[in-house]
Design a protein around this nucleic acid. Structure first.
Lengths: 114, 114
DNA sequence: AGCTATTGTATCGTTCGGCTATACATAGGT
DNA sequence: ACCTATGTATAGCCGAACGATACAATAGCT
C-alpha cells in the first residue's frame, strides 16, 4: 500500500500532472507537491529536486507564470497557467488518453480480473 | 494521423509493451517491432537503437530468454518469456492500471468530450 | 547482372528528465 | 533547545530512448 510508482512511469507525465493541478487555481510549489501526493493517494511524491526544476522548465516554456508573495512572512512563489499552458494541458491530456487506450488494448489480457 | 507518441511518454512502459507482445508466443526482434507498430496503429515505432538494447536488458534480468535460428538462411534471434517474465508482466500491468486510473482522475476534466 | 528496398541484428554517443544529496531559512510545538 | 513541517533552490549522478551508423542476407525489379 502507498508504494510509489516507478520513476520512469512518471517520466513524460509529470508535466501533465502539474499542469492539471494548476488548472483549477494558482498554487505554489509546496502546495502542488502536497496536492499531487493527496490526489494520488501517496503514490506520487515529488522530491523537491524533481519539482522545482520542472516548474522552472514549464515557466521557461511560458506554460506557467510566477510571482512572489512575501506578505505572509514565509516567502512563497505562486504559479498559474498561461493561455499557452491551458492549450498544452488539453492537448497533452488528449494525447495521454490515446496512449492509455493503446496500452490498455496491449495489456488488457494480463490485468487482474476487475 | 499516425503521429508518434512522445518518447518520454513511452519511457517506463516499453518494457511492459514488449513483455506483453511476447506473452502470446515467441518473437524475434524485428517481428516485435512490427507487431507493436501494428497494434498501436503506427503510433509506436521502436527504432532499432531502442529495441535491441531493451531486449538485451530484459534478457540480462532473466525476464526473457533467447536462441538463434539460422535454419532459415536469414539469421533470427528468437525471444520468449520466462516464468519470471510472466510474473513481471502481470505485476507491471497491474501497476500500470493503477497509474492510469490515477492520471485519469487528475486530467479527466480536461479531456475532450467522448 | 545490377540496383534498391526490406529484412534482420547490433553498438556508440548524445540528450534529457527524475533522483539523491545538500543547502538555507522561517514557523510551530514540546 | 530541539525537532518537525514548511518553503525554495542547485549540483551531480544515472539510465533509458534516440539518431547515426554499420553490416549482411533476401526479394523484387528492370
Amino acid at each position: 500500500m502507498a508504494e510509489k510508482f516507478e520513476s520512469d512511469l512518471l517520466r513524460g507525465s509529470l508535466d501533465l500532472m502539474v499542469l492539471s493541478v494548476l488548472a483549477s487555481d494558482p498554487q505554489y510549489g509546496y502546495s502542488i507537491q502536497k496536492r499531487l501526493q493527496e490526489a494520488s493517494r501517496e503514490k506520487v511524491r515529488l522530491p523537491a529536486g524533481t519539482l522545482y526544476p520542472l516548474l522552472h522548465r514549464l515557466e521557461a516554456d511560458l506554460l506557467i507564470r510566477s510571482w512572489l508573495d512575501s506578505s505572509t512572512g514565509r516567502q512563497r512563489k505562486w504559479y498559474a497557467l498561461t493561455a499557452k499552458g491551458k492549450k498544452r494541458l488539453t492537448a497533452q491530456a488528449a494525447q495521454w488518453q490515446q496512449y492509455a487506450d493503446c496500452m490498455q488494448s496491449l495489456i488488457g489480457n494480463y490485468l487482474p480480473a476487475s
